[in-house]
């Protein structure tokens, strides 16, 4: 059993218009997402805006109620957990937010922010809590004396450390990291990424790392799940992602990221995607990527391909893709088959 199992997770937001606030449509923010996360690993969730990755993070913690699907943490169904079970889950599953400014209450002292979970869950005496906060400050690389200060007295990187300390307070098993370094400067970003890696080793943490930044996700993750318009299109071992992408969207995404190396940049060929990401309120029929896909064929307009494991040792184990025409790798050669990938066909056609 995996630590976290997500199956067919869906989150649709109603679009309400008019004076009567009638629901006139739906935004398919997350639409049928399934993946497992093993204990101790880091699952990267990457995609562009409108991809639904942040919504997945929040739905996992039930911070936003999901429309459908199941999330199971250590065998407990998060979607249907009772009040008591949920309290327990809250201490096991934590979250670190993107914005180091908006995620800390400006009117609370850092000690109260970091220690709030301990108070809520009634852990220890005042003195023990104080000691724990000091310990947490130390763990994230801040001095315990700084706990007496208010958030605005800290820089962005330090605030993100405070957010991490808060998430660690209750000894969680899983932490959702929602764009935790996107708002930070390059040099500070590296500090926080290293801290996250150290904490994972030290406390045996499991991470779901949500980010738009492919370089960061690849760096920190063991596996990477690529989202597009509310769907998972590819899950890959991060070690082979750059060299063996199978889904055309992953390929385009990888090729669009500029590499900080002028010689590499001059020799690279860029796959330019035409147009913009369509609206998740009106996703394309068939495969959601087909209007922008350079490999799209007739069949791609009929139904969304199933998300299935792909064969081929080169592409790594546990490699999954939702594409009728995934890139294949054999003996170092890349090729795309003319015939649609049988496993990805809808059940009635396969």
């Amino acid at each position: 059993m995996s630590l976290l199992e997500v199956s067919d997770l869906r989150k649709h937001f109603p679009i309400r218009t008019g004076v009567l606030k009638r629901t006139t449509g739906w935004v398919y923010a997350v639409d049928g997402v399934s993946f497992d996360v093993e204990k101790g690993e880091t699952m990267g969730l990457v995609g562009e805006s409108g991809g639904g990755k942040s919504t997945v993070g929040r739905a996992l913690l039930r911070l936003t109620p999901a429309t459908g699907g199941n999330v199971t943490f250590e065998g407990i169904n998060v979607m249907k957990a009772s009040r008591g079970e949920m309290q327990k889950l809250r201490s096991d599953m934590q979250i670190v937010f993107q914005d180091p400014y908006a995620s800390l209450n400006p009117r609370m002292r850092v000690r109260d922010i970091v220690g709030e979970g301990l108070v809520i869950h009634d852990v220890g005496t005042d003195a023990e809590r104080k000691k724990r906060v000091a310990e947490l400050m130390d763990i994230v690389g801040l001095s315990p004396e700084q706990a007496e200060r208010y958030p605005h007295e800290f820089s962005g990187g330090q605030r993100q450390r405070i957010g991490i300390a808060r998430a660690l307070a209750l000894n969680p098993k899983l932490i959702i990291l929602d764009e935790p370094v996107s708002a930070l400067d390059v040099s500070i970003r590296a500090q926080v990424l290293n801290l996250l890696e150290d904490l994972q080793d030290e406390f045996d943490l499991t991470y779901v790392f949500v980010s738009h930044d492919l370089s960061v996700v690849k760096h920190i993750s063991d596996r990477v799940a690529v989202m597009y318009l509310g769907k998972l299109v590819e899950i890959s071992d991060s070690a082979v992602l750059y060299d063996f992408p199978q889904h055309p969207y992953t390929e385009a995404l990888l090729s669009a990221v500029p590499i900080p190396d002028p010689q590499t940049e001059r020799s690279r060929k860029r796959i330019m995607l035409e147009g913009d990401v369509p609206s998740p309120a009106d996703p394309p029929k068939g495969c959601v990527f087909h209007p922008r896909c350079p490999r799209a064929q007739e069949i791609c307009t009929t139904a969304m391909p199933r998300h299935v494991p792909t064969p081929g040792a080169d592409a790594g184990e546990r490699h999954e893709v939702a594409c009728y025409f995934p890139a294949r790798f054999k003996d170092g050669q890349r090729f795309v088959a003319d015939e649609p990938f049988r496993d990805a066909l809808p059940e009635d056609q396969a």
Binding site: S187, A190, L214, K218, H219, Y242, I259
Partner: peptide, 9 residues
């Protein structure tokens, strides 16, 4: 050296 590299093997 602060930059995570996409092309790092």
């Amino acid at each position: 050296s602060s930059l995570p590299r996409l092309d790092a093997s």
